[in-house]
Design a binder for these strands. Structure first.
Lengths: 343, 343
DNA sequence: AAACTTTTTGACAGCGTTGTCAACAATTCG
DNA sequence: CGAATTGTTGACAACGCTGTCAAAAAGTTT
């Protein structure tokens, strides 16, 4: 285990510790010859700066904090979401010398604001990435904003001015999916809405309407059923839609959990997917590819979004200059087996 | 945002900073009256110690590092595993004032030893939790051991002396599952083995043999097919077993991915599960509960294992006194729909 | 009450780095 | 060539805390 300090390097290289510090931090104003001497000494001693010391001296930690809704708190099968977020943040952390501190929390807990305040005060991260649906709660956003630590919100429903946001184009891709279904010849495309608190998901409903209009299809209240993002609500909605005398030939659900539920219900009712019914979802959860028929959906760029957000928080990137505003990362249509020509 | 330092607290409380430090660190030898004064001042100023400073002064970081195989590197559907590990470590971190630093890595990468050395040198964590299957690779274990940082291995195949290990009772629970299947009247219980490099999984084969013996059933090479933990290998193994003239009435797979594959293949072949074939797995992945019929399996105590391991690394616990040895956390049989009486 | 022991407290020196600012060296200009 | 300018380097004081060790206070014993 290396115990070399900056002093050792300075001694070996025959320069002052400050010069070593400059080289390590890639500051300008060091003569090439000097830089080389120092780099040689660093390599020789296998020196690596002590993070605690630099953080103390610079009064900032080389840490990015990712805050998300704890999936284990509700047995959600959405761990894929968390993993993808972590991936994105990690990519940037790795390349910029930051570490990732993860903090799942439960938004139902009244203490969560306080909890985050304490977290930030303790860890003093360089920035916080706040994932949806947490990014929708004013209580939580305010708590973080109050600490003065830079933060970026992921897919919040409403954009507050003066804050940085990375979002996806929910409305546009929902329209795209709707147009795709229409292009298959479907005339009766039903929609299962998401949880009203989850704003990004509700934008998809607007997109659905856009898509209908763009395809010259009429909108009908009859074809819309409310869901709340859960598998159970998807089942209930599917029952409602599929037991009708004149059932829709396609069902577009605001998220994959509900879409999977629709496929399950269709199976129980003996309705063939995609032969008699096309089903589409949103998110591209892991399960989407594993079920049969594999679900047509929209891959959310979670990992890329997290990456962009982290770049905004990391020192020395062009992204970190952005004072505020929204960056949009587009979702991607994934056509699989659950959709087909209208019967 | 609080900017109070230990000096402020000391001034307000009318004591020295060292006494404040003692109170904050719960050291003994502080009079109750003094402690109260200090606590009052701390509350009043909303003081929280600066982690970088205490880590620097104490030359140890309040950080636990969780190192695991990067599921995204192979599109494994095993993100549930990672999430559960994180949960366990986080529980202990939260309660003991540590933070969790996650480090997924790819064991196929030759550089991984070096990568971990750098990570540890940079972050200087209080300890490292090394998850399976990484915990099986001597190259990786050695790299971590060389840094001198305390670490605990999770479910390694072989136990090295002088190291701390938290494992589950793979052999015992595999025997239990086998006995359970036997108790349902199955006489021909097939087994699909796991990846030979994944030692913990191979112990399950021994357990299978134990279980047969304990149930008075003969062991037959005919009933054993090799798999490698992947869904694909499970499909291949299932085909081999189910196309036989005299096919087994139960198939026990060394992991859930393969068990799910068996169910899928049975479905394609028109074999009813559990009516004509019972299928059991190991691990209790998220998917196990989501498929139909829901998979009978053994829930691995990943979260509890990670918790125990972390406790060994955290200062001030009885667990951290353990110099070496293995702690066993038992798995739990989850009987669902994929197993039933022998036809 | 003196002498000792034990408990509680504080002074002070680091921990390994960065920021500030002044000093020095090299380069350019009149 | 000296002066002015620009580029490079180093001395030193933080940063906020913990460890060491000695001093002070409190408790015990004779």
């Amino acid at each position: 285990m290396s115990k070399a300090t900056i002093n050792d390097v300075a001694r070996i290289a025959g320069v002052s510790i400050k010069t070593v510090s400059r080289v390590v931090n890639r500051e300008s104003g060091v003569r090439d010859a000097t830089r080389e001497k120092v780099e040689k000494a660093i390599a020789e001693l296998n020196y690596w700066p002590n993070q605690s010391a630099r953080d103390l001296a610079a009064s900032r930690a080389h840490l990015i904090c990712l805050v998300y809704d704890d999936p284990s708190a509700y047995q959600l099968p959405s761990s894929g979401y968390v993993i993808r977020l972590q991936e994105g943040v990690l990519r940037v952390c790795r390349s910029h010398g930051y570490e990732l501190l993860i903090h799942p929390c439960n938004y139902r807990d009244k203490q969560v604001g306080e909890e985050l305040r304490v977290l930030i005060q303790r860890a003093r991260p360089a920035g916080v990435v706040l994932a949806a649906p947490l990014s929708n709660f004013p209580r939580i956003v305010k708590a973080i904003a109050a600490t003065g630590t830079p933060f970026v919100r992921l897919s919040p429903g409403q954009k507050l001015s003066g804050q940085r946001v990375v979002a996806t184009n929910d409305r546009e891709f929902a329209a795209e999916m709707t147009r795709y279904l229409a292009s298959l010849g479907h005339k009766h495309i039903a929609f299962i809405t998401g949880h009203p608190k989850h704003k990004a998901v509700s934008h998809r409903f607007d997109g659905y309407r856009d898509g209908l209009e763009q395809s010259g299809l009429p909108f009908s209240e009859q074809l819309v059923v409310a869901g709340d993002n859960s598998f159970g609500s998807g089942e209930a909605a599917a029952m409602k839609l599929l037991k009708r005398k004149r059932r829709p030939s396609a069902i577009f659900a605001a998220n994959d959990d509900m879409a999977v539920a629709v496929i399950r219900v269709a199976g129980r009712l003996g309705i063939n997917v995609p032969g008699q019914l096309s089903v589409a979802g949103c998110d591209d959860i892991t399960l989407a590819e594993q079920i049969h028929p594999a679900l047509t959906t929209i891959r959310q760029p979670f990992s890329t979004m997290a990456e962009k957000a982290t770049l905004m928080l990391v020192k020395g990137t062009t992204e970190s200059e952005l004072p505020e505003g929204t960056t949009v990362v587009p979702g991607k249509l994934r056509i699989r087996e659950s959709t087909g020509p209208a019967p």
